[in-house]
Design a protein around this nucleic acid. Structure first.
Lengths: 266, 266
DNA sequence: CAGTGGTCTAGACCACACC
DNA sequence: GTGTGGTCTAGACCACTGT
């Protein structure tokens, strides 16, 4: 077995204590000085452990205030594991959400593979995002049957992601997304009120909890006329986001020169 | 003016010395101990400065060996600012590159906006990437007229990106990419040997040098049947890559469970 | 003001690469 | 073995936040 580095060891112990609830969501951890005393180490080493957990999105460190077990409210403007709503907020667009449908206990066998369990019943939320009245994004979200109450409670004025983490007390720390280019099918065209053949991003995303369980499955259709993806790569740094605009006026060559656009991808 | 932190100050000075050639590409920097003596600081602080430059992809630190001004050969397997060729290598796919056309001094006024200069003549390289004989990606790359020799020298067995940095001695440290979903046009369909209407990713990318100049413009068409995008988000960590497969057998739901796929997105 | 995180020191010692 | 980067110490001092 490999030699255990002190700061990795400490990070692991803190992670365990968050998992088993010793440090609850939203509560503050002992101060760095206290941690260094608890683990009989130096401040620098304790800080190194915290830096790892912060990089993984598990804790949030605030200068002059304290270190907190990541709660959505605390990390909402820094973490990227967010629903589209937050991204649109950041772009200062007046996006409105309409609930198209809520389905409870639907049988959807193929989702077994996604959720990695024996269940075959899931609950689903279908939403339409509109930009100044124009439908621009169609999104379907699935949760396990046991979490259907989250969908029952959902209203359009809140992020499903945030509601989910609050109600279930499950911390989501990892997201995986697969995007394909597609030509929209009839059902999606109808809901999005588009009449011509239309290229779109088809995004499928899973959200994974601290316990390594898949707890949320999202599917989104982002039609080409309204959506682009912008990505910035600077050394190890590598970010991307979706950009939503009302149509036309989306010249990619011009977008390269828009400082605002790249600002938050640094 | 804001207080200058010591490690930021040191990082800035080292960056300047790389720009003006005091530290040349591929050569090693003084050791951390020496740096701490040169800047009259501690090793920890010198290391903090190096950590910043490493994060920006400007230097490469190798345990037991030394610290190097990032040369493509050194950082090729860690940095993400790479052409498609390297990404495909990583996926262990036998991708072959065919040169479709080389154009010199073409007038392309719209590229002024991209390259942010007065020039209107550019040189262009059109390439087709084939997977076991099947054309799967079409790519057009543009350079300023003054760098046309890079395209003259280009052969299919080398990365254009690597050739460019070697020949021009320009360090590329930042990349920006904009991706749209499109339905392929006739010209692209012809070159890719596709006969039916086909959705695709349309990627446009600029590469920016250490001097903040745009030095490379890339355009790629990645047809839906062969290409998906996979993205992983873990705290601040956020990576994506294109996945190329020979068609069919690209079930996104199955892909979520492929550990290999997500391995290098950690 | 007190309490928090952020920077910095001046080393010691460990792990790794190369000869 | 020599030289490199990586970890770690046991603090001091600075910067930020909230009372």
């Amino acid at each position: 077995m490999g030699k255990q580095l002190r700061y990795l060891e400490i990070a692991q112990i803190i992670k365990e204590r968050i998992k088993n609830g010793t440090f609850a969501r939203g509560e503050s951890l002992p101060s760095q000085k206290e941690l260094s005393e608890i683990f009989e180490t130096s401040i620098m080493t304790a800080r190194q452990a915290l830096a790892i957990l912060e990089g993984e999105g598990i804790i949030t460190v605030v200068h002059g205030v304290g270190t907190f077990v990541a709660a959505p409210a605390l990390h909402s403007d820094t973490i990227s594991l967010q629903g589209f709503q937050n991204e649109m907020d950041r772009q200062k667009l007046k996006i409105h959400t309409t609930i198209v449908e809520k389905k409870y206990g639907a049988v959807k066998a193929e989702l077994n593979r996604v959720f990695r369990n024996e269940q075959s019943e899931f609950s689903c939320l279908v939403r339409l995002r509109t930009l100044e009245g124009l439908p621009v994004i169609l999104q379907r979200s699935w949760v396990s049957f046991e979490n259907q109450s989250v969908i029952e409670e959902y209203t359009a004025d809140k992020s499903l992601y945030q509601l989910f983490t609050e109600r279930t007390n499950i911390m989501i720390t990892l997201g995986r997304e697969i995007v394909s280019p597609i030509i929209l099918g009839d059902e999606e065209l109808g809901l999005l009120n588009i009449t011509e053949p239309c290229p779109a991003f088809h995004s499928r995303r899973i959200s994974i909890s601290l316990d390594d369980k898949v707890v949320l499955y999202d599917e989104a259709f982002l039609p080409g006329p309204y959506v682009m993806m912008a990505s910035s790569k600077h050394g190890r740094n590598n970010k991307f986001k979706y950009i939503i605009k009302k149509d036309g006026a989306m010249d990619p060559l011009e977008s390269f020169n828009d400082p605002q656009l790249w600002e938050d991808l640094k």
